[in-house]
Design a protein around this nucleic acid. Sequence first.
DNA 1: TTTCGTTATGTTTTTATTTATATAACGCAA
DNA 2: TTGCGTTATATAAATAAAAACATAACGAAA
Lengths: 114, 114
Amino acid sequence: MSNPIFKLNGRVWIETGDEKVLGHGRVELLERIQASGSIRQAALQMKMSYKQAWDLVNHMNDGFGTPVVISQRGGKGGGKAIVTEHGLEVIKQFHLLHQKLQEFLKDNTELLKL
Amino acid sequence: MSNPIFKLNGRVWIETGDEKVLGHGRVELLERIQASGSIRQAALQMKMSYKQAWDLVNHMNDGFGTPVVISQRGGKGGGKAIVTEHGLEVIKQFHLLHQKLQEFLKDNTELLKL
DNA sequence: TTTCGTTATGTTTTTATTTATATAACGCAA
DNA sequence: TTGCGTTATATAAATAAAAACATAACGAAA
């Protein structure tokens, strides 16, 4: 067996050109927006500023051809944000990738000899 | 085929506990130290400060049980640094992992439907 | 014993990033 | 039509990260 104190870890993400458009953190943000219906609440939960969350959402909407989040201000509750059908698909795809990566990491940790 | 503008990318690294001990950048540093015999030259090549390079080397030596770089000051040329046998092994292992990840990314990019 | 170029280390300065603050826009509901 | 809570956006303040700078230690070679 390999030395137990060493752990293999990794990340995957999706780029357009050279810009990162979707990764681990952004997916969590989308999920929390979906769950709460609010960019603000999602940001609070993840302990990031509203501005940062909004910038990320904006960047994702730009990066993907079709928006992943649609938001509106005013109205009941002051405003809201929803994850689009395309956004849900994106989340799903990323989860699949993430899961596959975990398998990859697990398999190769076992081969790791240091 | 999947949308050509989206690219899957990723990284792997090795941790001990929760601290990153080896990744893509550190491996390049080791290789350049090996090639030049100097931490300073390696740092210059990678456009990082000597301090930063030295800190990384130190951190790696701490992180792995046995040192990956041994350095000495003074003497012919002012000093030198060499990558240990263990360091070479570590580089080799990481390259293997990196190569496998590239295959993983390639395989899954083809499945990527966005 | 002086010079040289590097390792080793700490300190200071600068830059970049993050966070906080402020304010306008908005539309529903009271 | 006023208040409310959110989205949207810009600007300022605070933190963190990186780079630059300075300097000591070192030993071979001149």
